[in-house]
Amino acid sequence: MTPGEGPGATLSDVLPAAAAALGAPQRPVDLALPGAARVVVLLVDGLGERQLAAAGRDAAFLGELRADGQVLTVGHPSTTATSMASFGTGLLPGAHGLVGYEVMDPARGVLLNELSWDPAVDPRAWQPAPTVFEHLVAAGVACVHVGPHQFAGSGLTEAALRGARYVAARSLADRVDATAAAVRRAPRSLVYLYWGELDKAGHEHGWRSEAWRRELGDVDLAVRELGRRLPPDTLLLVTSDHGMVDVPLARPDLADPAEAVGDGLAVGVPVSGGEARAPMLYCAPGQAEAVAARWRERLGPGALVLLRDDAVAAGWFGPVAPHVLPRLGDVVVACPPGVGVHDSRTQRRQLTRLVGLHGGRSPEETEVPLLVVAGARTG
């Protein structure tokens, strides 16, 4: 399997392709799937294609599926909130508008954390485009979302994934049970199952850690079990929202007083958003070009540091809607390998202790697998 199979296919194509497989096409996609009466989509948070390729016996069953799978790319930044909106709406980030972990809310002049959300922001106004789930329900397809209790009705769920009936379940085994039951309740259905513990293990311990490998092994067994329990007219898809890189803990922090003077990274940057691998810099008036030059010099030749208009012109976010443009930083950064930049002025200090990070534009972060099981799997 090589990048580019399924020409130009992205994570935003998965649910539109599933809709076409169910006989309810939403839009044309470059991703072709076999027809099915029912579809199950398992999204494993943090399972990048490069990480899966290196997993070996820790993911024997997924490895078998990978041999016939495809490689998708995710939008910028390669982070959960952005990718979940691309997945749920079938749109690229510049269209759906969830353009980072933390982004500027132009109406209030403060950052919005698009993962944890803020009750002051109406998620349906922030992201008004219909989701693929809403399209399918209108077409007569029963849609179910299986995930953790705390995500039911959350801001991100409402913005990116609304339309499906939510079923809360705690453990991976419980979610497999709930998915297997839900898919049988209707002759034409789509069930979406989310699992986030692999991403958590990678953040806390790194994706090469024993904890990460154990969690991947649990996912591998769960996919095998789920495949055994689905009706024969069901298509099972396994994908992810991003990959991950391990980054040394010695990282610049804009909260460091030394970064606020001279050629420091905080000079001219009263507010930064994004995250460590993909900072978005909201600059003081007239300072964007000087800030970009400082960041390029400091981060080195592997860094991508673009003014907002240049990032948009380069297609980082896909076509950008006018109402989304002010959410983007004046300077948009993709850090080079092994580098992350924090801003504890606004971000939780716990983030500085994370080993595994994502958000950047490396293949390790942006390539994700699409694994397909057609019909019940008994192997």
Score class of each variant (00 low, 15 high):
Y166D: 06
D246L: 05
P93H: 09
A293N: 04
A55R: 08
V29G: 00
G329R: 05
S362N: 00
T234E: 12
R108P: 11
S86K: 00
A81T: 11
G153C: 01
R296G: 03
G227L: 11
R27T: 13
P279F: 13
L112R: 01
C335W: 04
D309T: 01
G48V: 06
D68A: 14
N113L: 04
T157I: 00
D13S: 02
V269C: 09
T234H: 08
A36G: 03
E365K: 04
T234S: 14
L235N: 14
P270Q: 06
E367P: 04
T82N: 04
L357H: 03
A250N: 12
A276H: 07
L65S: 13
G196K: 10
R349H: 03
S83G: 05
L136V: 01
Q287L: 02
R38D: 11
S12K: 08
G69I: 14
G340D: 06
G227M: 11
D330V: 09
E367N: 02
A9Y: 10
G264A: 10
D122N: 14
D105M: 03
G206M: 02
C335Y: 01
L52K: 05
Q150H: 12
A37P: 03
G109E: 06
P369G: 09
P257T: 03
L115T: 14
R50L: 13
V331N: 05
S78E: 08
R27L: 13
P93I: 04
R57I: 11
A313N: 02
A17E: 08
P7A: 08
F87T: 06
L43Y: 02
P363R: 02
Y194K: 13
L237T: 13
G8L: 05
A278W: 01
G94W: 03
A376C: 13
G262Q: 11
P7V: 04
L115R: 10
A255L: 02
P25K: 07
V219E: 08
A19C: 07
T80K: 07
H323Y: 10
A180R: 14
P123G: 05
D220M: 12
Q150V: 11
Q347T: 08
P187I: 02
T239W: 03
L42E: 09
